[in-house]
Design a binder for these strands. Structure first.
Lengths: 350, 350
DNA sequence: GTGAAAGCGCTAACAG
DNA sequence: CTGTTAGCGCTTTCAC
């Protein structure tokens, strides 16, 4: 009745060659030598497999082996420059190692993130690389309990000892702020997002500490927190108003590249010029930051390093199965790339 | 010996409740009513499942059902703005429908693309959304033969009748060129990539036809083809030299957003100003094109529409299993977004 | 209403 | 060197 091509299985191969299923299976898994299969048999099997285009059924393998050769990647937003690059590097590394990758974006939404983690577990991934959201503590602890290999990237989960690869956000923000101060910008506005992800908190601390180390007192509203999840226009507007309401500000530090993009738009809408009216620096680079006029000074994340380290560590966990005694952590220092948006300027009196 | 939590299975649930596996399975799949399971039993099962945190083993389900509730997404480069957005939309749609998505980037490399398609098949995805590379004809035909649901996006595969959702590249390029002509740019340079993907060919045709319809004769080298896969610097250099060698050119049409980015850098390196020395338009929008000074005129792809249509059609194919008699095709018209990089100018003599 | 049992395709322990 | 076979966890037909 069904005219579709019948799916060919290991059984068919065995039958056609008058061999046992075992033999074929051994050959299939490269255990021919070890199990003492004659080279001739080996070749015959390989030949027929090729001829028939036989592919072992993955689901059966997974069911049998408990390993899916698949990892999950949970990022904040795959369409964002930073996470897109991260995904790319991980994909390449994974393929090199014979792994496939599932991906998903949390949109920084907690409920979504929880759902995604569960979905990853359901799909029996061998391990997960996670960009956490706030309040994911329970899920992360559960992962540890269930002995599912995972590593956190970009941000930690407060109160949980887990393996991670993150940026040294504190140092990055500190240095970027210091760069502004050294170039005689003393009235810096720090624009960040509202919810307290660990990396955002660290950046804010870096900013605050750099100011206080330089003995700069802010006599203005030096930090603007916008909540994302609103429309782009609303965010641009918030920044625009902030700038308008704090005319003494001589420079703006955006804690994220997309905030930087919004901020630049806001500044343009205020008819202000960068850097003559207001200097700009941003955390996270972006291909376009160097093309803008002026080009934008940034703290750039060594994406390749972060992604590679995270993946390699995940592999180790998956392959060793041994959970090491103490969590593994990598804190990677960002590079400050000075561009035209924050030139040295003459010191001015107040 | 093994202290790890023993994975709980449907059997355990059945035993603990003194029910048969069948009953539990029915409840699990929402077939309680249909199979006449008493509401009470139903509730007891649900309660225990929740209590024990039981999740049906996915691999077993896949093996049994032949459906994995997983689709594959093959794009050119996940870290590229356009494909990142496409991926995002598809991910969201897929999740809505209870599907997960595997992704992979081809880098526009044929061998990679072939490998990826095979890997997708191995992982028993239910369907694939594919950004083809050149010379993928054999693989695509094989997919048709094997009755694996798939839909092509962004570009066709010459010589293959397959379902697709693509942009009307011809019209987009035609209109973008016409926009330049109407604003009195008559010496237009078209910068594109070398290999003949269908969408690039169509864009080039659109450009050429718009010129010839306007009776414009090019007395210069009007088309530059760069091959990607080289380093960024080399590409920028090629464009830089092209501009330098063709000083009569008054405007540049980039066939892709990343070429646009490279091109802008090249123009800057030539110390030329946009648009006073040279106007610029680009195919494919990008968040930053509107932030650049000047902002860049583009033919913008309705990404959401493309991705959604492709996904929905794939779903239909997966769920109906019926291969329709004739291939499904959607050609979507791009929007021309006029910005500052191509203002109207006074007609000039030669 | 519920249960027994076959079988999806594969691996590997065990037996020759 | 090769074959037999149990079983991974689930769905579903058929029987009671």
């Amino acid at each position: 009745m069904n005219t579709s091509v019948k799916k060919i299985s290991i059984k068919d191969i065995a039958k056609e060659l008058n061999l046992s299923i075992t033999t074929v299976s051994f050959v299939l898994n490269g255990k021919g030598k070890k199990m003492g299969i004659s080279p001739e048999t080996n070749n015959r099997v390989h030949a027929l497999i090729k001829k028939r285009g036989f592919k072992p059924n993955n689901a059966a393998r997974v069911l049998r082996n408990g390993k899916s050769k698949t990892i999950g990647l949970i990022v904040e937003d795959i369409s964002n420059y930073f996470f897109g690059k991260i995904a790319k590097v991980i994909e390449v590394e994974a393929n090199k190692n014979g792994y496939s990758v599932f991906f998903s974006s949390t949109e920084n939404n907690n409920a979504t993130a929880k759902k995604l983690i569960n979905k990853m577990k359901d799909s029996s991934v061998d391990g997960i690389i996670i960009t956490a959201t706030q309040g994911l503590k329970t899920e992360i602890l559960k992962l540890k309990e269930e002995n599912i290999p995972f590593v956190l990237i970009d941000r930690l989960v407060p109160g949980v000892d887990a393996d991670y690869v993150i940026l040294d956000n504190y140092i990055g923000a500190y240095n970027l702020t210091k760069h502004l101060i050294d170039n005689n910008y003393k009235k810096i506005g720090f624009v960040t997002i509202e919810n307290g992800m660990s990396q955002m908190i660290d950046r804010e601390r870096g900013f605050v500490d750099a100011l206080s180390d330089a003995k700069i007192k802010t006599g203005y509203n030096s930090i603007l927190k916008v909540s994302i999840g609103q429309s782009d226009e609303v965010i641009v507007d918030r920044i625009k108003n902030y700038v308008a309401e704090n005319p003494t500000i001589d420079s703006l530090f955006f804690s994220t590249n997309y905030l930087g993009a919004f901020g630049i738009e806001a500044i343009q809408k205020n008819n202000l010029k960068i850097p003559s009216n207001i200097a700009v620096v941003s955390f996270d680079d972006n291909v376009f930051f160097k093309l803008l006029t002026p080009s934008i000074t940034v703290a750039s994340q060594p994406i390749k390093e972060i992604a590679t380290k995270a993946f390699q560590h995940l592999m180790k966990k998956i392959e060793n199965e041994s959970s090491q005694p103490r969590p593994y952590g990598q804190i990677i220092a960002p590079d400050i790339i000075v561009r035209d948006s924050s030139p040295k300027r003459k010191p001015r009196g107040k």
